[in-house]
Design a protein around this nucleic acid. Sequence first.
RNA 1: CGGGCCGUAGCGCAGUCUGGUAGCGCACUUCGCUGGGGGUGAAGGGGUCGCAGGUUCAAAUCCUGUCGGCCCGACCA
Length: 520
Amino acid sequence: MSLQARSLGLCYWRMSKKAQTAISPTRAEDYPEWYQQVIKAADLAETSPVRGCMVIKPWGYAIWENIQRELDARFKATGHKNAYFPLFIPMSFLQKEADHVEGFAKECAVVTHSRLEADADGKLQPAGPLEEPLIVRPTSETIIGELFAKWVQSYRDLPLLINQWANVVRWEMRTRLFLRTAEFLWQEGHTVHASSEEAMEETRQMLEVYADFAESHLAMPVMTGEKTEAERFPGAEATFAIEAMMQDRKALQAGTSHFLGQNFARSSEIKYLSAEGKEEYAWTTSWGVSTRLVGGLIMSHSDDDGLVLPPRIAPAHVVVIPVTPKESTRAAVLEYCQELKRELEAQVFLDGRVKVEFDDRDMRGGEKTWGWIKKGVPVRVEVGPRDMEADSVFVGRRDRAPKDKESMDRSAFISGISGLLDSIQDNLLAKAKAFRKAHTREIASEAEFVEFFTPEAGNPGEAHGGFALMGFCCDPELEDSIAKKYKVTVRCIPDSTASETVPCAFTGKPGKRVLFAKSY
RNA sequence: CGGGCCGUAGCGCAGUCUGGUAGCGCACUUCGCUGGGGGUGAAGGGGUCGCAGGUUCAAAUCCUGUCGGCCCGACCA
């Protein structure tokens, strides 16, 4: 809403110097608003008539499908099977695990009636009250636990490795497209093991799957580590997470993996008979990533001209844009483009084919090109009569400036497409890593901490801070007061430094080297 | 749920203070000129001003309520 101010005085003198950008405001001007505009310009999603819920549009959903496809393959490769459990959970189930209730009770949608009846005024009213209210799953530990208790009888049934792709509902107060919505799509893995060690191994393994996927496919570098008590999943013994840095230098928790100990096994009576004939409580884990990953993807790479997609997750790798200035050459150019599309689609990228969009819509060329830039397609190929004659193509890559385009020999372009896409993928990851590195700092004292996280005076909107690595005694009360005072939280105790003991920068007591950051 | 800002055409906004026939830009439709780039000229289409009450001869404008959005807190993947 500060658009008003911008369109008046400010822009007047900036206009002449500033390069025009497809997205307004820019990241530097207003980061949260820029984020929304990127989503709109790329046609990824929009808000819905239902408060806090989003509509994922085809281009956004295609990204989610690609995330699903790749992760699903990795889950299967590590021995997991997919299943599906009910959307509704009897309210009493939630009650079984004390911490779990506390964590989720205040954000549950509750179903209390089974039908609607018209009243005297013809208005529909809920009728047929349920004997026991149902809640819409905020997560499925309790109902899955109930079933696992039946499925697991013997040590021979273990390990039990299940995953489900589903929607869940958490009645959030403030929502943002992809990052936090009342209903979201996710995947939740639930496993049962005979020993603590094996369950912990599973927890770590799945965190590793997430971390590797984030880096290799989303080109989003992540830190892995354990959460402190304050940030732990309700009911878990230990929670691990992957944390990524967004372009405003805030941290985004992009995936979690929980070691649940025997807490849910006890509350759901998941027991098995060991080889020695003894009845034992099992050990469980759960782990998940959500459509939030799409938000992370957007904020990792996109620029002031819109979305930037890493090739490995992009719904389309190449868009072919015919340039038809003269009616006389139009048919020939279109045919040339069709053939180009066919040949590109015969090329292999990753473990599939190169995905090509051919945009022959009858509209102005510039608009069309900018449309695809805003959608983030990695490679644009513009082909006109002159290119056709020279048997060449005019190529632009999304990780470079919009006008930074070059003419390439057609066959060389086709045979090199896979390499070109790899190079864009690598470049995006390298850029993201460099950005994170540039804004990660070792912090030794509270004063330095405050300086790092405080914007320049008089410029509260300025990008500042980042990842602060520092010694911390992990006292929950101190952590809480720091969070309240500075709006900075412990994102995790990074695995890379978990074994070190260092003095706490606040108290001097022995502590761990932890990652502090502002977060989403 | 508290504090601030805001709901007027598909999108972005002016008009509200000071009540008097609903406007602008972009987008859209048709036609023309253009033609390696989001160009240009003309003519059009589209809005019960978020919703419900109230005050008034008259309400986008004033009053009350309500629903929704954004930002800042508390909460969270």
